[in-house]
Simulated scan of single mutants.
Amino acid sequence: MSLSPDLKYTSDHEWIAREGDLSTVGVTAHASDALGDVVYLDLPAVGTTIKAGDACGEIESTKSVSDLFAPADGEVVEINEAAVADPGLVNSDPFGAGWLFRMRIAGTPDLLDAAAYAALTAGE
């Protein structure tokens, strides 16, 4: 699995990319592989305030339904309508077209770098 050193990761298998005052959030390839074919996304509504570590949505696959956890405190400013319409994007391009939402972060989240995330998933 190739991990970008430009991204940060959570132990719950989300990634986050900071772009100025906004950050894009998605799930890692490790998570999308474990989920199997993603068939439905329930993402937080625009304007929702989320808190790091709290469930903020759901990802449903042919195998299970899994919670989506907020990677940081902040406000949701955009959801990926293309991924809602075609949840398979989470499987086919989890670090690109399969992003889930954008948020404005409040504070500095405690996140993993690529090496720490690789070490975390090595035993799974």
Rank of each mutant, 00 (worst) to 15 (best):
L43Q: 02
V39P: 03
V39C: 03
G107Y: 12
A45T: 06
G26T: 07
A119D: 14
V65N: 04
D37K: 05
C56E: 03
S92W: 03
M103Y: 01
K63P: 07
A45K: 13
I16A: 08
D12G: 05
V27D: 10
G98T: 13
P44S: 06
G57S: 06
A70M: 08
S11W: 12
S32A: 15
P87N: 04
N91M: 10
K8M: 14
T49A: 13
L68V: 07
D110L: 09
S32P: 03
A115M: 02
G123F: 11
D73E: 10
V76K: 02
L111F: 12
V38Y: 00
L89S: 08
G96P: 12
Y117G: 10
V84N: 01
T49E: 12
P44G: 04
K63Q: 03
L7I: 05
G36F: 04
D54H: 14
A118W: 02
E75V: 15
V90Q: 01
V77D: 03
V25Y: 00
L112I: 02
G123Q: 10
S4H: 10
A52I: 10
I79C: 11
V90L: 01
I79E: 08
L89Y: 00
E81Q: 12
T28Y: 10
T108I: 12
F95N: 08
V25F: 01
D86W: 05
D86K: 15
V38S: 01
V25A: 05
I79R: 13
S66H: 01
A122Y: 01
F95I: 07
A70K: 08
W99E: 05
V65Y: 07
I105A: 13
T10D: 06
I105K: 09
L41T: 04
A72D: 08
L22G: 03
S2V: 14
I59N: 02
L100G: 06
S23N: 13
V65E: 04
A85F: 11
A29F: 13
A116E: 13
I59Q: 01
T62H: 01
M1Y: 09
A115Q: 13
P94C: 07
P87G: 02
T28C: 05
L100M: 14
V46N: 02
L120K: 14
D54S: 14
P94K: 04
L112P: 12
V84Q: 04
A34S: 14
D42R: 03
W99N: 08
K63H: 01
A70D: 09
G53R: 14
A116V: 00
A114Q: 05
P94E: 01
L68I: 08
T48P: 00
V39H: 00
T49R: 09
G20T: 04
W99I: 11
V76H: 00
E81W: 04
N91C: 10
S32Y: 09
N91S: 10
S11Y: 12
I59M: 11
F95Y: 15
V65A: 13
P109A: 04
P5W: 00
A85R: 07
H13M: 05
S23D: 13
E81T: 15
R102C: 04
A72V: 02
D73K: 09
S11A: 15
F95A: 11
P44E: 06
G74C: 05
I59A: 07
Y40C: 00
A29L: 15
M1I: 09
G107M: 11
K8S: 15
A55N: 14
T24Y: 05
G20Y: 05
L22H: 09
